[in-house]
Amino acid sequence: MPHDHDHDDHSHSHAPPEDIVVRVKALENLMIKKGFVDPAAVDEIVEHYERRIGPHIGAKVVARAWANPAYKARLVSDANAALAELDVSRLQGEDIVVVENTDKIHNVLVCTLCSCYPWNLLGLPPVWYKSTPYRSRIVKEPRVVLKEDFDLPVADDVEVRVWDANAELRYMVLPQRPEGTDGLSEEELEKLVTRDSMIGTGQPARLTK
């Protein structure tokens, strides 16, 4: 299996037991044979989530909100309508709530029961978001997780708000616009928006000189 992505200082394997690979192939073949599945449809949906839908969509929304106060007001009060203005798709993000970080509030997202995540804005979730270490700990000790696991210490006087996505609502964090970005265009701002800043486990990128 190609393994061209690198890891942090941890080592963890994604290589599944051979049995799982065989079972997935068997399932696909059985479903095709029974007339329930068209493999071209599988190809098509994979293509969308692997190549077209990802955090760049959320970044575009965030940059628009940073650049345009009226848009930001609409985004935090009625996200669905504001996202429709930018032609954002809706699957696994049919009802979105945008939560805004401020000097006094830091928001962070989780789905403790499974893996709910705003696919339409951020694409498919990373493995850590779906893992039990994150799901179990972020609700109970968010400051410890943010500081120790994400190098994101939160000041004592900033309130941490955890959002557990246990219904069909999906959330996105609107991170704070970085200082020193006054002259930037929306396109330049987009490049500063990281996936983790829209989950609440990171900050936007700093300007590089």
Binding site: H5, P126, V127, S131, T132, P133, S136, V139, K140, F150
Partner: peptide, 18 residues
Amino acid sequence: CGGMDGHGPVLPEKNEPV
């Protein structure tokens, strides 16, 4: 699992593929 202890550290993967 929300609130359980003992699951260990979160392990983000750099440049994780979809």
